[in-house]
Amino acid sequence: MFQYDFMQHAFLAGTLVALMCGTIGVFVMARNLSFIAHTFSHIGFAGASFAVYAGIDPLEGLLLFTLLSALGVGQMGVKAFRRDASVSVILSFFLGLGILFLSLSNKQSNFTATLLFGSVVGINMQDVWQIVGLTLLVLFVLALGYRLLKFDSFDQVGAAAAGLPIRWISVGFLLLMSVAVSVTVQIVGALLVFVLMTVPAAAARYFTQSVFAMIVVSSLLAAAGVWFGLVMGYYTSAPVSFYIASFEAVMYFTGITYQRLMLRYKKVRAS
């Protein structure tokens, strides 16, 4: 399997993206931004479609649209944007916009499927370098702002009282998230960003008891999902994204069951 360049690229890019998603996903969950992440992926779809129409690199279109959206959401305030109605309107509008751009360009069905459902085995070495650069940038900024972000994500009232620049932290995090979404869309597609961005972090909550452990477990679950998907995708004809989504879903429900069993065990031990 590893004698093929495309599999090497897929493993390298997939693992890095998984580590990034596992890490940022913990903060996405803590800040209740999972639906905004999902919306960003749809906005990214429109951006990539626009890039195809305009004849530029799809990643540039993804980044352009999602970064502008992050600034817009930051300006408007996350609370206003998080309303169900706002999310559904924006999500639908950008999906429609994406379809419009694709219809105006000559690349249609194949490219639509790639953008919506991802194509991890279709990435070339240039894509890998772009993904490596952006992923390391996101992880580096997350490491530098770890304490700031942890405080604001897990104790917003305390962070505001401590005089932290919470508005700037929010905007900064949305910008990071938009970069992460743009990169992830290339691996699992716009419709399945949830799979790496929030499901591993959600599952990790059930296995761990500290923020750092949650980051580690979430990253491992995301990476394991990508590896499982790639291996299964290689040996079968089913899409890689399907296997990644299935693996993460199983991990999530295993986490719920594990927590319930632990609670029951503790009750029995206490009595």
């Binding site: 803590a30 304490r147 405080f151 897990f154 305390g158 909550r205 008891q209 500290s210 923020v211």
Partner: peptide, 11 residues
Amino acid sequence: TPIQAGDFVSL
């Protein structure tokens, strides 16, 4: 939320 009390104090 899996933040431990000690971790919370350190914030």
